[in-house]
Amino acid sequence: MIEVLNVSRQYGSFWAVQDLSFSVDAGEIVGLVGPNGAGKTTTMKMITGYLVPSTGRLRVNGIDVVADPTAAQATIGYLPENNPVYPDMSVQDYLVFVGRMRGLSGPVLKERLRFAVGACRIEDRLVRPIATLSKGLRQRVGIAQAIIHDPGILILDEPTSGLDPNQIVEIRDLIRELGRDKTVILSTHILSEVEESCTRALMIVGGRLALDDDIEDLVGARSLLLRIEEADGDPTPVLAAIPGVRSVEAVGPRHRLHLDDQGEVGREVFRVAVSEGWELAEMSVERRDLEDVFRSVSRRGIA
């Protein structure tokens, strides 16, 4: 559980974050999105206790981050931006170091090390110096470091930046897997990533919260596009009578059905087509594009 209450942060005369409030419940995977320099990283640095907010309060699992940073930090796993590591250390030495600094030792440390290394699939790189690893592997080491103490909360700042498409897919899968029993906040400026990995999107523009919505509500199926051939007469009134269809719009040879919500409308359309004797040449579900949503919000600025 993370609570951000009216938090602002100033660098000199520049306000990186302004009056930001949101809360994240246990088990959510939240994507923090927004253009570069919007205040995503600053927000994460404040949640993890690295930076102190200029005003406002932050609570992690009920612990005030400013008043008791070490207690809050003990419950958080953090992958900072650009994944800083100690390149001279071997993967194992590095993970053991972080584990010990987090108070693990003996068989517990061994067990946690085995888990983290297994989850991130870096078992066969343990003795390699981190400097010799590819960027994708290094990122896995950074994530292994963040989960070594089995934190309830994971804060990942741009976990996939600079990776190639294959590596991105791997890291996404890993995050989804970890998100099954952890609260995750990740930041990104790749919108499809939010759609792939997250249950909720928070958009920050100019240091302010511009959008806070469930992914399903944002991108759920909103319309069906049909191409009907061999219809006797205009199919529009028949289509409009299908339960769940709000309105029908003719788009050239096609019809677009605007839906109330994602129900079993597609099946019903099939049934009607068969009984009316139409030939259904095409039917596609139109999802709203996250990119469009964000672009319109960005342009609009602060709601």
């Binding site: 640095k45 070490t70 900072p80 650009n82 800083p84 972080v98």
Partner: peptide
């Protein structure tokens, strides 16, 4: 220089 200061300072240590 490496930014690992952030890692150190977000570990639960005084």
């Amino acid at each position: 220089e490496m930014g690992s200061i952030e890692l150190l300072m977000t570990l639960p240590a005084h």
